[in-house]
Simulated scan of single mutants.
Amino acid sequence: METCQTKLGADHPDTLTSKSNLASTYRNQGRWDEAEKLEVQVMETRKAKLGVDYPDTLISMANLASTYRNQGRWDEAEKLDVQVMETSKTKLGVDHPDTLTSMGNLASTYRNQGRWGEAEKLFIQVIETLKIKLGADHPDTLTSISNLASTYRNQGRWNEAEKLEVQVMETSKTKLGVDHLDTLMSMSNLASTLWKQGRWDEAEKLDVQVMETRKTKLGIDHPDTLTSIANHASTLWKQGRWDEAEKLEVQVMEASKTKLGIDHPDTLTIMHK
């Protein structure tokens, strides 16, 4: 980023891309203020240089909305999400991939606010369009189905959630392989639904499979691996297997402190648990 600024200028497209990439790194570390500062800078520069309805400008707005969403700043996230969605519909069309992504982002904001009906409506619209455009077994379609399942799960609509999650998991296994990261995520989502219903044995079986595969594929201290270890610990804890749960939770906490820092949201979450 610094080299681009010196060689190309602060408002050059390559400089803005590098700033956006750095902001993404900050966002993934939970360094919200630093991410937001860069994202606002990129967004405002692109508005001035390219226009408010240019695709790169819309992407920068969506990135900023994501940072707001991760902090629970729902109103600010929603305002940007709606603006991006409406502009994308006008400029690109209602069934363009970028428009569908923006609809999914807005639906996620609604879901996080507990606005289930609005979230469900958008997710279903996205799913049906993706099925037609990309096919029922395309990764983007499966992701949208997972999002709808999450909306059902958060409402306690277990049967509907489970049905969709099984569908996504089995399709992912067939299309991507049993150890693909998307497949593992679908298995974890299903385990969560089973866990919420108190179906501990079934949840544990999936949790362990996800955990062991992530250890092999990603490493024991990868954030996704740590999440799966924490999920397994929660299942053990619910069964009253305190010693086993504590051992795993301490492992996750110490690894999170080292990898992410003591004040990262994921580290604080596991300390709280």
Results as ranks from 00 to 15, higher is better:
73 R>D: 10
74 W>N: 13
75 D>W: 01
77 A>P: 03
77 A>W: 02
78 E>R: 07
81 D>P: 01
82 V>I: 15
86 E>F: 03
87 T>Q: 03
87 T>S: 03
87 T>K: 00
89 K>P: 00
98 D>I: 04
99 T>G: 09
99 T>D: 07
100 L>H: 02
100 L>Y: 04
102 S>R: 05
103 M>P: 00
104 G>M: 06
105 N>Y: 02
107 A>K: 01
108 S>N: 14
110 Y>S: 05
110 Y>I: 05
111 R>C: 06
112 N>D: 15
113 Q>R: 14
116 W>I: 02
117 G>C: 06
117 G>Q: 12
119 A>Y: 01
120 E>H: 05
120 E>Y: 04
122 L>C: 07
123 F>Q: 13
124 I>N: 07
124 I>A: 15
126 V>Y: 04
129 T>D: 01
130 L>W: 09
130 L>E: 14
132 I>M: 13
135 G>V: 00
137 D>F: 01
137 D>P: 01
139 P>F: 01
143 T>M: 04
144 S>C: 05
144 S>I: 02
148 L>P: 04
149 A>Q: 11
149 A>W: 06
150 S>A: 11
151 T>H: 02
153 R>W: 11
159 N>H: 09
165 E>M: 06
167 Q>S: 09
167 Q>P: 08
168 V>R: 02
170 E>C: 04
170 E>W: 08
170 E>G: 00
171 T>W: 12
171 T>C: 12
171 T>N: 09
172 S>D: 13
173 K>H: 10
174 T>H: 06
174 T>N: 13
176 L>H: 06
